[in-house]
Simulated scan of single mutants.
Amino acid sequence: MSEPVRLIKKYPNRRLYDTKTSAYITLGDVKDLVLKFEVFKVVDAKTGDDLTRSILLQIILEEETGGVPMFSSELLSGFIRFYGSTMQGMLGKYLENNMKTFVDFQQKLQDQSRTMYGAADNTHMQTDFWNQFLNFQQPAMQSMMTAYMDQSKKMFQSMQDQLQSQTRNMFTGYQADKPEK
């Protein structure tokens, strides 16, 4: 049986209350829960609205302003441009799937290196593998996106052609009454 979702309440004074430990916690404590893979939900204490994503974004913002940022300004600008576009949902799913693949690959790499070299620190070897993986992935993803765009363009053109044909067929034989003089 899985554990119930850990509930954290956010109060109007911006304090976070962990109902499991019956104590106030910080964003740093929430970050620790994420790092421990704990399942939790943050809700507004007054309205019950789910604030989990908002809190996670706050943690990312603190991390981005604190040390070496993970996201470039160009990447963040690209994210913003996708909001409201028809590709918004697709981008989110794409990023989610790639993150899962990235984490799975990292785990397999760590497991293999432990098997081959024991518990010794092999950070340099892992970095080399990651560089090779990323150098391969970028051209592969560009090729996939180009193929997707070509396919989408062809499908859109086909839909337009069908619509024009149906419109022509609808009005064939229809003759407008000419006004009498």
Rank of each mutant, 00 (worst) to 15 (best):
S2E: 14
E3T: 13
V5N: 15
K9D: 15
K10A: 15
Y11P: 08
P12L: 13
T19A: 03
K20G: 05
T21H: 12
S22F: 03
A23S: 06
Y24P: 01
T26V: 01
T26R: 10
L27W: 05
V30E: 02
D32E: 09
V34M: 11
V34P: 01
K36R: 04
K36Q: 01
F37M: 02
F37K: 10
F40N: 05
V42G: 05
V42A: 02
D50A: 09
L57K: 02
I59E: 00
E62N: 13
E63F: 00
G66M: 10
M70S: 06
F71A: 04
S72M: 12
S73Y: 11
E74Y: 13
G78D: 08
I80W: 15
F82Q: 13
F82M: 14
F82G: 00
T86I: 03
Q88A: 03
L91M: 05
L91S: 03
K93M: 06
N98V: 02
V103M: 12
Q106C: 12
R114L: 06
T115Q: 11
M116F: 06
Y117R: 12
H124D: 12
Q126W: 02
D128W: 01
D128I: 00
N131V: 10
L134V: 08
M141D: 05
A147P: 07
Y148N: 10
D150C: 06
K153C: 14
M159T: 09
M159I: 13
Q160D: 09
D161I: 01
L163V: 01
Q164L: 07
N169T: 12
F171N: 03
T172H: 08
K178T: 14
K178M: 15
